[in-house]
């Protein structure tokens, strides 16, 4: 388990400032959801944990400064799943999950028996053993999510950075994937930092949420404290309503009554 610290993180692409002076501490084993409208800077903030562009400030995993660490070391500290992962045509599921072991092999070495065993274990933990020889580009949406998570598990990094892993899924499938991430997190004692669009799901799955707007962090804390109508209306739009269901926040955007 590992602590992730963002300290005065600024990402400036020249024309636009994507992230402006964000300071945030993610505790060990915690799931932090980064929320906010499109273009708020969520992805840019997340990318800094895996040595993406950084203009100012520092990102640390267990006191190790990410942008100063060697590339293999970084891969052992944090695993990353982008919004749209690349699933190369013709690559077997086994070989794809084996990619997660890259940072554990010598630069020119082949995989060891341990790497092979870890890949089989990762596949087994997600019920993917029968898929080992399948073409990774031929799988369904839900299957590819599991394959992604298998690669993350094989990488054995204590931190997982997820950039909107569920963006393309229907409501039930999304719920399943989030449960899967939570399971993987608990079983492997992983700290999760994820960008999310679905505020209601974030309220249920995240220990802590951070709301971003125009590159700035507008609020951080427990979902029920942060996801208030006042803040969300300011950041998203005035039509946002927050409803309490069984002690959890449900966030919807309601159409104006007169226009219905």
């Amino acid at each position: 388990m590992s602590v992730v610290e963002f300290e005065n993180v600024t990402v400036d692409y020249g024309a636009t400032v994507a992230v402006a002076d964000v300071t945030l501490r993610v505790e060990s084993g915690e799931w932090v959801g980064v929320l906010g409208p499109n273009g708020a800077g969520k992805s840019s903030l997340l990318r800094t944990v895996v040595a993406g562009p950084l203009t100012q400030g520092e990102v640390r995993v267990d006191d190790e400064v990410i942008h100063e660490a060697a590339v293999r070391r970084r891969a052992r500290l944090a695993a990353y799943v982008p919004q749209r992962p690349v699933f190369p045509k013709g690559m077997s599921v086994f070989d794809y999950v084996l990619l997660g072991r890259t940072s554990h092999m010598g630069p020119l070495a082949a995989e060891s028996a341990t790497d092979i065993r870890i890949v089989w274990d990762s596949l087994a933990s997600l019920d993917l053993v029968d898929f080992a020889e399948r073409d990774v580009s031929s799988l369904s949406g839900g299957e590819t999510q599991r394959v992604s998570m298998a690669r993350v598990i094989a990488q054995r990094a204590p931190v997982l950075v997820l950039d909107e892993a569920t963006a393309a899924l229907d409501v039930a499938r999304q719920h399943q994937v989030l449960e899967l991430i939570d399971e993987v997190r608990r079983d492997n004692e992983i700290t999760v930092v994820s960008a999310m669009h679905d505020l209601t799901a974030a309220a249920q799955f995240c220990d802590t949420v951070g709301v971003m707007d125009k590159g700035r962090l507008r609020g951080v804390g427990a979902p029920n404290d942060v996801l208030t109508e006042d803040l969300l209306r300011e950041v998203f739009e005035p039509t946002v309503r927050v409803i309490d269901v069984d002690g959890s926040r449900v966030i919807v955007s309601m159409r104006d009554k007169e226009r219905r």
């Binding site: 895996v50 040595a51 590339v71 293999r72 970084r74 891969a75 052992r76 944090a78 695993a79 990353y80 982008p82 992962p85 690349v86 699933f87 190369p88 690559m91 070989d95 990619l99 997660g100 890259t102 940072s103 092999m105 630069p107 020119l108 082949a110 995989e111 990488q155």
Partner: peptide, 19 residues
């Protein structure tokens, strides 16, 4: 083997531990 890692694109490949 490194060429197989490159197959997932530069961004993902760099997070897997190669330059």
């Amino acid at each position: 083997r490194l060429m197989d890692v490159l197959a997932v694109g530069d961004v993902e490949a760099s997070t897997l531990g190669i330059e």
